[in-house]
Every structure is written in structure tokens, then in C-alpha cells.
């Protein structure tokens, strides 16, 4: 298998490190090698936070611009800030109001590069379920519905259940499943909450 480069981004406190950890642990369970790069320190105080995850036999932890197979954004503008990472044919998964996504002027860029862009209102889902701080799980569930990248829905969901503390397991899985349901509906053409497929 070749390398899969993933860029995860958002704001400090949105749970990017946890989301990265879920994907990394799922990859490790599959017996794959991986490298991640994380943001710590001052930027965590409300600034832009990015983490890189590379699955495969790589030496460096950072994804090179133009080579990410997946960019996942917990905040829409942070997603746009990281557009330079997208490779041709990459997947772009964003927590955003689907009625307004993507913002004006970007569709030609996505189409030129063959980028699959998809959004889910993960913040709203998380609010509905009563765990506004766990929107990362909703986006992860949504992403898992598309079978994009090397990890299956079962592998990702299983890892969420395995590495979440027992206190949060039920609510996290509920959010993950709610995101997955939105994603499945979109993938099957129900609901239409996705981009150009």
C-alpha cells in the first residue's frame, strides 16, 4: 500500500488531536506504520491548530503541500486556509453549514483538481445531541460513511469505542453514528448534503 497523507485542522479546543489519534490507532491496529505532527504550546490558546497524519512507510511527519489525500476541517475557514495541502483528486471534509458550503468561487478550483468536497453541520449535530464539544466525532462519522482512504467505517468506529473513556463512550458513539447517518444519506443521494458527486 502507498502512503496516505491526512491534514486535520480547526481551532484550539475543537478536538483535533483526538480525531488524529482515532485514525492513527485504527491504522496501527491494521499493522500500518505512521507518523503524526501535532500543534502544542501557544497556538493552542485559540489559534489555528493543524495536525498531520501520514500512514505508510514514511520518514517525515509533515505532509508536503499538494500531497494530502484527505483534508478534514472542524472549522470552515481553517479548512480553506489548508487548501494548499490538497493533492489532485483528494477528499475535503468540512464541518460547515451545508446550505452555504463551499463559499463562492471555490468550485472551479475543486473541479479543476478533481477534489471531492463534502460538508456536514457537525457543530449543529453535536449541539442537538447535547455534546457541543464533541463535534469532532460527528465529522469523523460523516467521513467514515464515504469509504475514503485506507480505513473502513468499522475500523474507525471500533477505535472510537476502544480509546474513548467509559464516561464519554456512549455519547461519542452516538455522535459518530449521527455523523455516519448524514454521510450515508449523502453518499446514497438522500439529503443532498454533499458536494460534487
Amino acid at each position: 500500500m502507498g502512503t496516505t497523507n491526512i491534514v486535520l485542522c480547526g481551532l484550539g479546543g475543537q478536538g483535533i488531536l483526538f480525531m488524529t489519534r482515532v485514525l492513527a490507532e485504527a491504522a496501527l491496529d491494521r499493522g500500518l506504520n505512521l507518523m503524526c505532527a501535532e500543534t502544542h504550546g501557544m497556538a493552542q490558546r485559540g489559534g489555528s491548530v493543524v495536525s498531520h497524519l501520514r500512514i505508510g512507510d514514511v520518514k517525515g511527519s509533515l505532509v508536503q503541500e499538494g500531497t494530502a489525500h484527505l483534508v478534514m476541517a472542524l472549522e470552515e475557514n481553517e479548512g480553506y486556509r489548508n487548501l494548499p495541502f490538497l493533492a489532485e483528486g483528494a477528499g475535503f471534509y468540512v464541518n460547515a453549514d451545508s446550505r452555504r458550503f463551499p463559499r463562492e468561487g471555490l468550485v472551479p478550483f475543486f473541479e479543476k483538481k478533481g477534489i471531492r468536497f463534502r460538508s456536514v453541520d457537525a457543530g449543529e449535530l453535536a449541539m442537538e445531541i447535547g455534546a457541543p464539544m464533541s463535534l469532532n466525532l460527528a465529522l469523523l462519522g460523516f467521513f467514515a460513511a464515504f469509504g475514503d482512504g485506507p480505513l473502513s467505517h468499522e475500523e474507525i468506529r471500533g477505535t472510537v469505542g476502544k480509546i474513548t473513556s467509559s464516561r464519554l463512550r456512549e455519547i461519542n458513539l452516538r455522535l459518530f453514528d449521527a455523523g455516519f447517518e448524514r454521510g450515508s444519506a449523502a453518499a446514497e443521494g438522500r439529503g443532498g448534503q454533499y458536494g460534487n458527486e
Binding site: L11, G12, M42, A43, Q44, R45, G46, G47, S48, E65, G66, N77, Y80, R81, L83, P84, L86, R103, L106, F109
Partner: peptide, 25 residues
């Protein structure tokens, strides 16, 4: 093999994305 992609940088710069500065909690 890879060419430099200046267009995407210009595209992002043109979006007027909010500048995020760290701040006290």
C-alpha cells in the same frame, strides 16, 4: 516531477480568511 502551485496560494490569500491570534482564555 511536481510543479509549484502558485494559484492555490493566491486563491487562499484572496479569501480574506480571519487572522487568528492566540488570546487569553
Amino acid at each position: 516531477l511536481k510543479k509549484e502551485d502558485r494559484d492555490v496560494k493566491e486563491l487562499v490569500n484572496g479569501l480574506g480568511l480571519p487572522v487568528r491570534r492566540p488570546s487569553l482564555c
